[in-house]
Amino acid sequence: MDTATQPSPLRGHGNYEHLMLLASGLAPMATAVAHPCDAASLAGALDAAKAGFIVPLLVGPRPRILAVAQAEGLDLSGIEIVDTPHSVASAARAVELVREGRAALLMKGSLHSDEVLAAITARDTGLRTGRRVSHVFIMDVPRYAEPLFITDAAVNIFPDLDAKRDIVQNAIDLHVGLGLGRPRVAILSAVETVTTSIPSTIEAAALCKMADRGQITGGDLDGPLALDNAISPEAARIKGIVSPVAGRAQILVAPDLEAGNMLAKNLTFMAGADAAGIVLGARVPVILTSRADTLKTRLASCAVAVLYAQARLRQPGLGG
């Protein structure tokens, strides 16, 4: 049986440790933390600083940040606070710090994801590039030996074909940038055959042809694939699917946000997986954390952002 479905030799959760070890050998990066006004987001930023991943610039209402720190016994000595009146202003100012060159990363605090994304994608004042902004979960699944990427489960609700091209390319660039090699990319649907009654199968086939024509580069694509024959060699064998990707996928591209979000949360809450999250396609990586994230997941998200940002400095073509 293929090693992709064997229990990890690190007994489940070991993939993050490798990424965090790599990031710990790099210089910490200045990070604008937008509105860290609750215990989880403030402690997460400080823990990432203690781990040597980031140098946080806390952007938010100074009295609220200080009150949270005092209530939780958190030491803010030497940490810069950029005072703002409210969450929308915090997001806008955090983006400005990146545009000014004072921050190399952006991290979501306790505000809504929509507020951060609105500031990032603002036409004249945001962090737009030529790419569509998209989200990737970097999953550490106990019975999957490699990190498993799931995209897009947090930003693009019903992406069209052009958006999916960017979503796929963003994920490929991240996989390569983290030093994980050329990825095997499964374009998911409910079935593995192309049928007009399921539009996502047609888009999956089109994406694979786009890769053949050089419109998507750096990865091996196959699709449409149902989830079972994307990650199970036995399921792929039974269905008679022969490809470098089937049964061994490293990136799972969901047909829409609903499917991707349910898949990621299913793995998290029913299979015990960890789910680090990052937003790509902007000028800098964006660390998108959740209130349900563990300390380990928050640190892994920061490590991934640092590694990818450094890779983009070395390889300017990554990320568009």
Rank of each mutant, 00 (worst) to 15 (best):
D274K: 12
D140S: 08
T125S: 14
R182H: 13
L178Y: 12
T217I: 06
E17F: 12
V245L: 04
A49L: 04
H35M: 11
H86G: 09
V136G: 10
C208M: 14
L267T: 10
L288R: 01
T121F: 06
A104R: 13
R11I: 00
R128I: 13
A122S: 13
P85L: 11
K50A: 15
A305V: 11
P183E: 11
L227P: 00
G109N: 01
S110P: 00
E115S: 14
R237D: 14
G247C: 10
E96G: 06
D83L: 01
D114S: 15
L66K: 10
Q315L: 10
I157F: 05
A303K: 05
G240D: 10
V185T: 14
R213S: 10
D166T: 13
L19V: 07
D2N: 15
S200I: 05
N266E: 14
A23M: 05
G14I: 06
L161G: 00
G214C: 05
I79L: 03
Q6H: 03
L58C: 05
M139D: 06
S301Q: 08
A39L: 11
P28R: 03
L66D: 08
V194Y: 03
A271C: 06
A32L: 09
G126Q: 07
L148M: 15
V279C: 07
T84E: 12
L97T: 04
G218R: 03
H13C: 01
D173N: 01
R312T: 08
A27L: 09
R132D: 10
L180C: 12
L307Y: 01
L299H: 06
R314W: 04
V242D: 14
D212E: 12
G281T: 05
V168P: 05
K209H: 12
Y16T: 04
F158Y: 11
T151N: 04
P147T: 09
S200P: 08
M139P: 04
K239L: 12
A49Q: 14
A43P: 01
L105E: 07
I150D: 10
L225E: 00
I54N: 05
R128M: 14
V141Y: 04
R291V: 05
L318I: 08
A275S: 12
I81C: 07
P63G: 01
A122T: 05
S134Y: 01
